[in-house]
Design a protein around this nucleic acid. Structure first.
Length: 158
DNA sequence: GCCAACGTTGGC
DNA sequence: GCCAACGTTGGC
């Protein structure tokens, strides 16, 4: 039995790394490095599986919006940027013997023609319990329910 | 730029 | 283990 596909959402600040940057990568694929939150890490390390689909969200943007879909193409492995003293996300407590932070590889699937801005998502019944829309939610890697993913796909297709 | 909501750190 | 102080996130 194949395990059912799961759905996720990852946040990125477009000024730092946008979905267009992902589109410009060789093979439209990148390692999702720099996550330094334990809950988010656990999702990536333990639960994100090859083939899972991932909504890409632009935070701190005008407007903040879900902008496309990516796919997990490599499951978790240590985030080497934690070992680089010159990296913004350097963490001396993470070592090669005992890595603290992990990442997955994501490949771009689709950029929405019309980004789905936050106000458009609020008020959608199927999204009532969505983590992204919860007040005060800061989780940068979060699970998405099947019905939520479907709803967003529908909205994106007009 | 403001600030509320969070997560982490560290003294005790 | 508590919790105040601090740093960060992220919408507005």
């Amino acid at each position: 039995m194949a395990t059912p596909k799961r759905y996720w959402l990852v946040k990125t600040e477009p000024e730092a790394y946008s979905i267009q940057d992902l589109a410009n990568e060789p093979k439209k694929t990148t390692c999702w490095d720099g996550v330094r939150n334990y809950q988010a890490r656990n999702f990536m390390r333990d639960d994100m599986k090859k083939g899972d689909l991932v909504l890409v969200y632009h935070s701190n943007a005008n407007p903040p919006a879900v902008v496309g879909i990516a796919k997990v193409v490599r499951e978790s492995y240590p985030d080497h940027t934690a070992w680089d003293p010159d990296d913004k996300h350097y963490d001396p407590k993470s070592t090669a013997e005992n890595p603290r932070w992990f990442m997955v590889d994501l490949k771009l699937q689709k950029i929405f023609k019309h980004p789905l801005a936050l106000p458009e998502l609020r008020g959608q019944k199927p999204l009532a319990e969505m983590e992204l829309l919860r007040k005060g939610s800061r989780l940068s890697v979060q699970p998405v329910r099947g019905k939520e993913f479907t709803c967003i796909e529908k909205l994106a297709n007009g």
